[in-house]
């Protein structure tokens, strides 16, 4: 490290740190949906990555349509795309819960296998419709360019934008889960199904909405994802293993834990990859997480319960 001046090092850390932030956003966006589905419902959704991909493809379709309509449409299509992505993935999630997941609630390992099968089918459907080549959305003008903080530090605007979306979505989810009536119902259902039922909560409905919401969030994540990378049929599945580690590492039922662990994993991977090769950085980071999980299986944030 002796070859770098202090100023250069700072710049490297800031820039690597910022590219780590982009990775953090992807992890967290995906993990938020999983944290609800896995953390709150105990369902392992291996097709979660495909929901993200679906959201990204919907965004692509909207941008494609907007490009036909002209420059004004192209400037403002993004909010529409987010809503469309949410609705599309929410609907698919609703159907999947209705026709598949709900028959498997008592068999978590089987859910894992069945949703993996679902993911495989979805990937092939994407490939048939959109082709194996990656698709890139046309970006609105206001997302192009970058913000020059100093001579050496250059921060791309789309990176800032996805950061904002991630933060807004996270806060909204916090509010929904811990401040709204619906959140109370979800948590009641998770903690004591029988009692929740007796208290007049329609637990079937809560399950379905929770699962669909988790998928919807993945859809929004997919829309945001298109601003920093292109979309292919297997885009989402590339991150699924990492994301599960993020959720488990954070402590499955803790949303705050998910945020912290997504940040930690993304940053260490990104900063290490400057000094080592990218693959070694990833190996080292994931290995550390696995070893920590072996020593502390309950994850970073876990509440003690009298058993």
């Amino acid at each position: 490290m002796g070859d770098f001046t202090a100023q250069e090092l700072t710049a490297i850390f800031v820039m690597q740190g910022f590219s780590g932030l982009s990775l953090f956003c992807v992890f967290l966006l995906m993990a938020l949906g999983l944290a609800i589905i896995f953390g709150q419902m105990g369902v392992i959704n291996m097709a979660h990555g495909e929901f993200l991909t679906l959201g990204a493809y919907i965004t692509y379709l909207v941008s494609y349509q907007a490009a036909e309509w002209g420059a004004t449409a192209l400037t403002w299509y993004f909010p529409v795309a987010i809503v469309a992505a949410f609705i599309g993935t929410f609907a698919l999630g609703y159907l999947v819960e209705r026709f598949m997941i709900r028959y498997l609630y008592n068999r978590p390992l089987d859910t894992l296998l069945a949703t993996w099968g679902l993911g495989l089918i979805l990937q092939q459907v994407f490939r048939s419709i959109f082709g194996p080549r990656e698709k890139t959305v046309t970006m609105p003008d206001w997302l192009l360019g970058s913000y020059r903080a100093t001579d050496m530090i250059d921060i791309p605007l789309n990176g800032l934008f996805i950061l904002v979306i991630t933060l807004v979505l996270t806060l909204a989810l916090f509010a929904l889960l811990y401040r709204s009536r619906w959140g109370i119902k979800v948590r009641a259902t998770t903690q004591n199904r029988g009692m929740a039922n007796a208290a007049g909560i329609n637990t079937d409905r809560v399950d379905r909405m929770t699962f669909a919401l988790g998928c919807g969030i993945a859809g929004v994540a997919g829309a945001a994802f298109t601003t920093i990378a292109s979309t292919g049929p297997t885009t989402g599945s590339l991150y699924i293993v990492d994301t599960f580690l993020v959720v488990v590492f954070g402590g499955a039922a803790s949303l705050l834990g998910t945020v912290v662990s997504a940040f930690g994993i993304a940053q260490s991977q990104s900063i290490l990859s400057f000094f080592w090769s990218g693959s070694m950085a990833k190996v080292f980071t994931l290995l550390t997480v696995v070893v920590i999980l072996m020593l502390r299986p309950q994850g970073l944030f876990a509440s003690k319960v009298r058993r």
Partner: peptide, 14 residues
């Protein structure tokens, strides 16, 4: 049929 191994503890409505 296996009893629950994950966090989902209730007998379930399904």
């Amino acid at each position: 049929h296996k009893p629950d191994t994950a966090s989902r503890s209730a007998a379930g409505t399904t």
